[in-house]
Design a protein around this nucleic acid. Sequence first.
DNA 1: GTCTATAGCACGATAGAC
DNA 2: GTCTATCGTGCTATAGAC
Lengths: 236, 236
Amino acid sequence: MPRRAKASRPAKAPGAPAEAADGSAEPVPHGRGRKIAAKRTAILGAGLKLFSRYGLHGATMEEIAKAAHVSKTNLFYYFASKEEIYVAILRQLLESWFAPLDGLKPEADPVAAIGAYIRQKVIFSRDNPDASRLFCLEIVQGAPLLGPELRGVLKAVVDAKAGVIRAWVAAGKLAAVDPHHLLFSIWATTQHYADFAAQIDAVIGRDLTDETYLEATIANIQRIVLDGVRPRGAGG
Amino acid sequence: MPRRAKASRPAKAPGAPAEAADGSAEPVPHGRGRKIAAKRTAILGAGLKLFSRYGLHGATMEEIAKAAHVSKTNLFYYFASKEEIYVAILRQLLESWFAPLDGLKPEADPVAAIGAYIRQKVIFSRDNPDASRLFCLEIVQGAPLLGPELRGVLKAVVDAKAGVIRAWVAAGKLAAVDPHHLLFSIWATTQHYADFAAQIDAVIGRDLTDETYLEATIANIQRIVLDGVRPRGAGG
DNA sequence: GTCTATAGCACGATAGAC
DNA sequence: GTCTATCGTGCTATAGAC
């Protein structure tokens, strides 16, 4: 029983539909399957909440079971191990994490598209703070379990979008900025408000659930990323 | 033995010089005290490395002992508990984390000062990636142990610097930007390169130890924060 | 101050009845 | 599929000799 496993065994659990260890939205369960899919979803939700707060090793199966309104034994009926729950959650996250990138299309207006992308990311951070933070936890610890997906699907998506940005620059529709650095800066600033919410709350006593602060945050990130702060008469 | 304690008992360990549970630089140990101070430092260093990779609960006392070249029993001679090591490390980090803020003085040139600050933060991220990441881990999990310090000393420092930035704006030396959002954006972008190094490496296969990439990163953050990306002829 | 030995228990995972 | 009971062990922390 290695404490820090490298990869998950293929050990299939019931209700896992061949590939997507998800249980929320893929093949649409029918009739009897609905109940077990609902339980899997509840477990993943409970795991998300607890893993994001206490980490993989800090959260316990007993707590997850309780939060999901399931007995501890039952947990092991649906998932073979703690790590299996963890990676199932992470895989789900990754998709929703880069989905907003779809908006960066070649034919779109760069500034408008980037501005919209920033808004979407901040809104996502507000609506899914736990997701944002769990993703952060995994990456910060070196992405031991998500690494392969990052090098695979994420890299592919990012490379494609970098091409779009590069085309915008070449067309003179955007200042000469490195595409990857631009994306990293957007990710950094938008997720910061979810991931470092504890720090922000400690310093200024606000968070994104405050509608006014949410809009101010979006505006300021858009401003900093899109306009800069160098003085030139009328500010903003 | 509560698994997730709220605060550390005052239980003093030998070699802890009254206040600073640090052991590296404060009262300058003399003669015999040097050896035990060196061991404490080694333990804190080992803890930093392991906690930042595996989290508070993921790292084990046995591993820390081995990494610090100390027997496991000896570890408990120098520190009363695992958490005591953890908080001692965090307290150290906080100081070095906001020390670079000193450069933001009212009499300085805003753009130059902010540019220099960005450089310092990125350099710090390169030289202390583990520190950056451990700090991130703690905040992301809600800062359960560092919360009070954030609301105290960090808030005080930030409020002071926000005043400086506000004065710059009032004097017309800087565009009208919210001071807190500006600071948050700088923290977000600079630390991103240390904290999300695994992701960046997965996507573009580089990290800050590459001197060329380091300089490109600094330049791009400075550019994005200071200049923005809106098209206006010659880019950068 | 450093060691060997071990207490003590929380927690991941399993057995097996129903 | 869900339960009760329990195993095995990894891990924090202590005891006590030297």
